[in-house]
Structure formats: structure tokens, C-alpha cells
Design a protein around this nucleic acid. Structure first.
Length: 262
DNA sequence: ATGGCCAATATGATTGGA
């Protein structure tokens, strides 16, 4: 079973890229972020035509997450628990059934948090604390669980072209990275790092300043796996070539293969 | 690592992104 995540930076701008990539990579489940539209105008038909069930949780203009799945959804639940007044569309959880049992997947668009001196950073940190609480509860189910998305967290120095330049950025501050470690310390595995320890694996290149041409990238899109998922991990990759397509997203797809029959 | 971008909005300037 192949599971992927991709921040598309507007689903309506990127629908042709998405369908081309779906044909090429043939994932079973895809978590999308920054769809940037209301559910009524989400281009679900072109995805259903490729055999995907489509679950959306969007809002006007900003944020927005979705999950595509070849298997039917048993459950679909929007919103990260822990704050009833948080109205950002940043979280969507789904459960599908395989012959080996349930697989639980969440599409995550964690707040950026810049600039760090503002309530935007406070919101990010609180969101990360809520995510840890959610994860610790779900881990008790002892299911294959995949938390996939744009975390807006650079976990380590090897995950950024120029660490010194990012020292005071919300994506790389010690408090941010501490909370990412809280997640992994719960028993969640960073799938890319479990399979590849080389430096310079990036998932995002800024549109500005020729960042792509200079390979000034950062690794901020992650798939975190419960032990029951990590034990079945047989491959992982980053589809870097998609960044060179015409009018690309600034993020590229990241995917894993789990040995789960069905 | 900001000179250089991109997307959405009743839009022609502003906000948010990372």
C-alpha cells in the first residue's frame, strides 16, 4: 500500500499536476494540504475519474486539507481536537479497511508560525501540543497510523541547506523542534529518516530568489508512523522532479510503501 | 534566506505563505 502527502498550494491551480502525478506514482492514499478552496468548488470529479474516493475539509482562500483513497472511507473526521474556536481547515482524519485490518490516516497542515514574536507562533505551538495529545490517544489503538502532511518543521540541521539562516525562523526554532521530538518520542517514526540518513533531502523550495535552481531547500513535509505502520515500512521517497514542472507547487510529493496486503 | 514568487480576493493592492 502506497501512501503519499503533498502540499499542492491551491488544488485548482494544481489539478493537472496532481492527476499526472497520480498516474505516474499510483498511490493508494494521498493527503493534500493548502487546497485553498471551499468544498463546493473542489475539483473532485477529475480525481474520482482516476478511481479515488475524495474527502475534503476546506475553507475560503486559505489552508484546506483533503484525502484521496482508492479504498472506500469507513470514517472521515475533520478538525484536530482540543480547541473549539480554531476554525482553520488544517486537519482531516480517515480510516480505511484492508484485509489486515484498519489503517488510520490524517492529513495535517501545521501552522507556519512566523513571525515568532506574534500570536501566530503561539498558535503553532498550541497546535503542536494538541497534535501530540491526539497522537498519544490514537497510538493506544495500536493500529497502523500515518500522520502525513506539511508540518512546517525542519527537524534537523541536515534538513536545511543553510541552517544558520533559519535559526530564528518559526520552522527551525528550538521550541518548534522540541515539539517535533515530542511526537517522535511518543513512538512515531519519521519515515524518510527511517530509510535514508543522507543530508540534503528537501521537500520545499521557495519560489523566491532562485531557491530551486540553487537547491536552497528544506524538509518540512513528513509522514510519521505508529509502530504498527513502521514495522511494515518497505520504502519511501521524495518526488523532487515534480518541482521542475511548469508552474509547480513550492512543495513536492513524499510517499511511503507499506507491506499491507490488499 | 530574501533582489528575484505565487495564489486568492470583488482584484488593480493587500494578505499570507515559508
Amino acid at each position: 500500500m502506497r501512501i503519499a502527502t503533498w502540499n499542492v498550494n491551491s488544488i485548482r491551480q494544481r489539478i493537472d499536476h496532481l492527476t499526472a502525478w497520480l498516474v505516474e506514482r499510483a498511490p493508494d492514499i494521498v493527503c493534500l494540504q493548502e487546497t485553498k478552496c471551499m468544498d463546493e468548488v473542489f475539483p473532485r470529479e477529475s480525481l474520482e475519474a482516476l478511481g479515488y474516493n475524495v474527502a475534503v475539509h476546506g475553507q475560503k482562500t486559505f489552508n484546506g486539507v483533503a484525502i484521496l483513497s482508492k479504498l472506500p472511507f469507513d470514517e472521515v473526521t475533520p478538525r484536530l481536537p482540543g480547541d473549539d474556536v480554531d476554525d482553520h481547515a488544517r486537519f482531516l482524519e480517515a480510516v480505511v479497511s484492508t484485509p489486515r485490518g484498519a489503517v488510520r490516516v490524517a492529513s495535517i497542515y501545521l501552522p507556519n508560525g512566523n513571525p515568532p514574536s506574534t500570536e501566530k507562533y503561539t498558535y503553532k505551538i498550541k497546535w503542536m501540543d494538541r497534535l501530540s495529545k491526539y497522537a498519544s490517544e490514537r497510538l493506544q489503538l495500536e493500529e497502523p497510523l500515518i500522520l502525513a502532511g506539511d508540518y512546517n518543521v525542519i527537524p534537523n540541521s541536515i534538513d536545511v541547506h543553510n541552517p544558520a539562516a533559519w535559526e530564528t525562523d518559526a520552522l527551525f526554532l528550538p521550541q518548534t523542534r522540541e515539539r517535533f521530538r515530542t511526537l517522535t518520542n511518543l513512538g512515531l517514526t519519521d519515515a524518510i529518516r527511517a530509510t535514508n540518513d543522507t543530508k540534503g533531502l528537501y521537500t520545499f523550495w521557495d519560489y523566491q530568489a532562485g531557491a530551486w535552481q540553487k537547491n536552497w531547500g528544506i524538509r518540512i513535509d513528513h509522514l510519521l508512523l505508529s509502530p504498527q505502520a513502521a514495522d511494515r515500512l518497505v520504502g519511501a521517497g521524495i518526488d523532487k522532479h515534480v518541482r521542475s514542472w511548469e508552474k509547480p507547487s513550492d512543495h513536492v510529493p513524499v510517499w511511503i510503501d507499506l507491506k499491507i496486503e490488499g
